[in-house]
């Protein structure tokens, strides 16, 4: 099994992004995703900067670089940027909306179906394969059983070899997308006058219950899980069912340590007790996502 570093979901200053990906290049990740997936107003790096960064990171390395694209696209201007990224001529693209699937299909180029593409069953896998999908990220809310069923069905249908399967395995889970910017709202600003305030929160803003429970993390128009998802104990199971890649989300530089920990877990499985107040693994076990099984 390979390990990937997912796209950073937060808004960081350009120099920090560049630093981060220099470290990513030195990390144990086999695949590195990069690009803005949350908000088109975040312009510390523009499309050409992301592609430039991808080229820098790709130099002198065997790692696969993938350009990730936006999830909620609402305007022709956003679609223009998306087209530019899709038609980059060099890197594989992660589609996080069907618009990107459409564009990649028109370009006759392969793509990764990201976690925000709703692919829940075999018929949908077949539709996406026909469009050119070569790698599939399971939606984060689905369980290990669900995945096993689907991968077995894909084998039975003789299509399992046509795509790689990747599972979101560590980090804050992307749970929802809105027209509204919750970070701007938390500062009593409207989205149109947000002053790019999410740059002040490099790991998002915690939204707790009034009992102090970490419920969600606000990240602009995106809502993340309050706990970090952690499938470290499930790595042998993922490997056994033929998952090709485990994704470590780029929450912070801790991701680099986690990449090593997760890889080690395959070689030398050691059960790690999750604390249940900052970590969870419920989705995989078909219970409330925020729970620990």
């Amino acid at each position: 099994m390979k390990f990937s570093l997912g796209p950073s979901l937060f808004f960081w200053p350009k120099n920090e992004v560049v630093d981060f990906y220099q470290q990513a290049k030195e990390s144990s990740a086999d695949v590195i995703y990069l690009g803005e997936t949350v908000c088109s107003k975040r312009r510390e790096l523009r499309a050409k900067d992301w592609l430039g960064l991808a080229q820098d990171v790709a130099q002198d390395t065997n790692k696969q670089i993938v350009v990730s694209t936006m999830t909620l696209l609402e305007s022709p201007a956003e679609i223009q940027v998306l087209k530019r990224l899709c038609d980059n001529g060099e890197f594989l693209v992660e589609a996080n909306d069907l618009s990107a699937v459409q564009i990649m299909h028109e370009l006759n180029m392969p793509f990764v179906a990201g976690p925000a593409i709703n692919c829940y069953n075999l018929s949908t896998l077949k539709v996406l394969l026909k469009q050119g999908m070569t790698r599939w990220l399971m939606p984060v809310e689905l369980s290990g059983d669900w995945l096993k069923t689907l991968l077995n069905q894909a084998s039975d249908a003789g299509i399992r070899q046509q795509f790689e399967c990747e599972v979101f395995s560590w980090g804050y889970l992307p749970l929802a997308y809105s027209a509204r910017c919750f970070t701007a709202r938390s500062e009593d600003k409207a989205k149109d006058d947000c002053e790019y305030c999410c740059i002040k929160y490099p790991e998002g803003r915690r939204m707790n219950s009034r009992e102090g429970e970490r419920v969600f993390v606000l990240n602009g128009i995106q809502t993340l899980s309050g706990y970090q998802y952690n499938l470290i104990n499930e790595m042998p199971a993922l490997d056994a069912m033929g998952v090709d890649i485990a994704r470590i989300s780029a929450d912070s530089t801790e991701a680099f340590t986690q990449l090593d920990n997760f890889r080690e877990q395959l070689v030398n499985p050691t059960r790690k007790e999750l604390d249940g107040v900052t970590e969870c693994n419920g989705f995989w076990h078909k219970i409330a996502g925020m729970s620990v099984a």
């Binding site: 925000a116 829940y120 939606p139 889970l173 749970l175 929802a176 809502t223 899980s225």
Partner: peptide, 21 residues
């Protein structure tokens, strides 16, 4: 619904059950 419909797993995160599933 304030979230893009079909792309909201808040409910399953808290209860295990979502609009999608």
């Amino acid at each position: 619904c304030i979230m893009a419909e079909g792309r909201c797993y808040l409910s399953s995160y808290m209860t295990g059950e979502s609009p999608n599933t």
